Amino acid sequence: MPSLAQMSGSLHIHQFYIDKLKANQERLLGSDPELAQLLDNVAAVLSEHAVALAEDIAEMESSEED
């Protein structure tokens, strides 16, 4: 199982790419709506994974406090 530091780093990377995808999606919305929709879908999948990862991190942090 990955360490808490590795999971936190992964969450940070997820958030970085989610932000980049959303910025590019907004930029492409007028010129290429299909690509913009694809980027939005990818960002949504990464966001779901980031939420699950954040929950796992919270669980690990609470178990370390016990």
Rank of each mutant, 00 (worst) to 15 (best):
E65R: 14
I13S: 06
A58N: 09
L46K: 08
E59P: 00
D19K: 12
I18Y: 04
D19Y: 07
L53I: 07
V42M: 12
Y17F: 11
V45L: 04
E48W: 05
L28Y: 14
V51M: 04
A44M: 03
G30R: 12
F16S: 14
L4M: 02
L53F: 06
S62K: 04
L21I: 05
L4C: 04
L53S: 11
L35S: 08
S10K: 00
L39F: 08
L29A: 15
A43Q: 07
A52V: 06
D56T: 01
H49F: 01
Q37L: 04
E61M: 09
E61L: 09
S8H: 03
E64Y: 04
A36I: 15
E59H: 03
V45M: 07
A36M: 13
V42G: 13
Q15E: 12
E26Y: 09
Q6D: 01
L11R: 08
E26G: 07
N24Q: 08
Q15H: 13
A23Q: 13
E59Y: 02
D19I: 02
N24F: 12
H49V: 04
Y17K: 05
K22W: 08
H12G: 09
S47N: 14
E65V: 09
F16W: 14
P2C: 00
Q6I: 00
M1G: 00
A5G: 06
D66F: 11
L35N: 10
L21W: 02
K20I: 10
L11C: 05
L29N: 12
E64N: 03
N41K: 07
V42T: 11
H49P: 01
G30Y: 14
Q6E: 01
K22Q: 14
P33I: 15
D56Y: 00
E65D: 14
S8R: 06
E34M: 12
E61A: 10
A50K: 10
D32T: 15
D56V: 00
Q25D: 10
E55T: 05
D32I: 15
H49M: 04
M60V: 02
I57E: 02
A36K: 13
Q37T: 08
D66H: 09
D19H: 11
S3D: 03
S10E: 02
A36R: 14
P2L: 01
I57K: 00
L39N: 07
L35A: 06
P33S: 15
L53H: 06
D66K: 12
A44I: 07
S47C: 11
A23D: 14
V51T: 06
Q25K: 14
V51G: 03
Y17W: 11
S8F: 01
V42Q: 09
A36Q: 13
I13V: 07
L28C: 10
S62N: 05
Q6P: 01
D32L: 15
L21V: 03
V42K: 10
E48R: 13
V51W: 07
S63N: 02
M7C: 03
Q25G: 12
L38W: 13
E61K: 14
E34P: 03
G9T: 04
Q37H: 03
A43L: 06
L46P: 09
V51C: 01
P33F: 15
L21D: 03
Q37P: 03
L28N: 08
